[in-house]
């Protein structure tokens, strides 16, 4: 009888383990926050635990979207109004740290990532959930905003967590940088729930932690001109993959296409590069470097990559020529045939 009991325990254990495996497999969630899609995938975590973590992530992301939204009336538009009025504003340590970080990243990008040009982004019509319909702003409108030269250097970080601006034309617009902050917040929530294998993907930019069971996470990089993937990457444990692409937001007016990545040097949509993909540990660095390198253009991308300290970069230019750092070239796998030639940088280590 005892042996039969042992056998029954064995059978139950098998069922239990199997059921546990099913419950702890891959769980996927799709949220709509930041005016875009947020996809969260967990692996090897209990369903209930994943559900709880994702509920907290959704609430946290909605709070971040509310707190940092560039044009919907809220704390951030109020901050912009007070800075423009020349007031000294007191902020909490976390918010101030995030603004200070953006200023540092802007400086290392030589102001090509310039979150102080919110007014320029607005005049192009991109302060809207939907794509604008045109017409584009007139040269005098652009010149008026450029001549005031708003940059993050206009911000003065004072004692007692205070902030003021010396330039009334400064209007902060953090764009994708906010999403990078939200990705870190989401990963921290997952880790607090002891979930160590996951992807947090906001609008196509993501941080991956851990693995998908016995293999790495496999990420496809979207083709800039047609549906499907152009290349793929297997991400290491805790790595971000961010792409800036001119195809993400744009409008057409009288046969001309205008995209949302505005070059702060001339106030026009950046030309010459279709997309830039950056791999980095830090999502804020990956996001701002991808954007700045795209704006820098084909002739200056390697200089910007060195300046921003990013070593894994893929650039696709408007002629569908591929440029990459050596480290990126060794990792990227093309998903198109024939396999394109890759111009490998000799100057980025």
């Amino acid at each position: 009888m005892m042996r039969i009991c042992h056998g029954a325990v064995l059978a139950l254990a098998v069922i239990g383990l199997a059921a546990c495996g099913r419950n702890a497999g891959e769980h996927s969630y799709r949220l709509f926050v930041f005016g875009t899609l947020v996809d969260i995938t967990t692996y090897d975590a209990q369903r209930e635990r994943s559900d709880r973590a994702v509920q907290q992530i959704e609430a946290a992301m909605q709070q971040i979207d509310h707190d940092w939204h560039a044009w919907r009336p809220g704390p951030f538009t109020e901050l912009n109004a007070r800075l423009a009025a020349g007031e000294t504003v007191t902020l909490d340590t976390v918010a101030l740290g995030q603004i200070r970080r953006a200023a540092q990243l802007s400086a290392t990008s030589h102001d090509l990532f310039n979150p102080a040009i919110g007014k320029l982004i607005a005049v192009w019509g991109f302060h809207n959930d939907d794509a604008p319909s045109g017409p584009p702003p007139t040269p005098p409108q652009i010149y008026a905003l450029l001549s005031a030269r708003p940059t993050m250097k206009d911000l003065v970080f004072g004692d007692g967590n205070t902030l003021r601006s010396t330039n009334p034309s400064l209007q902060l617009d953090f764009g994708g940088y906010t999403k990078a902050l939200a990705i870190d917040t989401a990963i921290a929530i997952l880790q607090r729930h002891k979930i160590h294998n996951a992807i947090v993907n906001i609008g196509g930019d993501m941080r991956t932690i851990g693995r998908h069971g016995l293999r790495h996470w496999r990420i496809g990089i979207r083709h800039p001109q047609q549906p499907g993937a152009i290349a793929s990457i297997e991400t290491a444990d805790d790595e971000c993959i961010f792409t800036s692409g001119t195809y993400e937001r744009y409008f057409e007016y009288q046969g001309q296409t205008y995209h949302h990545l505005i070059d702060p040097r001339n106030g026009q949509p950046a030309r010459g590069v279709l997309s830039v993909t950056v791999l980095h540990k830090d999502p804020a660095v990956a996001e701002t470097a991808a954007k700045a390198i795209l704006i820098a253009g084909v002739s200056q991308w390697q200089y910007l990559a060195r300046e921003m300290g990013v070593k894994q970069v893929l650039v696709i230019d408007q002629n569908m020529q591929f440029h990459a750092t050596a480290q990126m070239a060794s990792r990227v796998k093309f998903e198109i045939t024939p396999t394109p030639d890759l111009n490998i940088s000799k100057t980025v280590p």
Partner: peptide, 22 residues
């Protein structure tokens, strides 16, 4: 369709990618 909050994804028998970067 982000304004309407609807997405469509084609699923293969064995998905090649865990996520798409764009």
């Amino acid at each position: 369709c982000l304004p309407n909050g609807i997405t469509v994804t084609v699923l293969g028998r064995n998905p090649r990618f865990d996520a798409i970067n764009f």
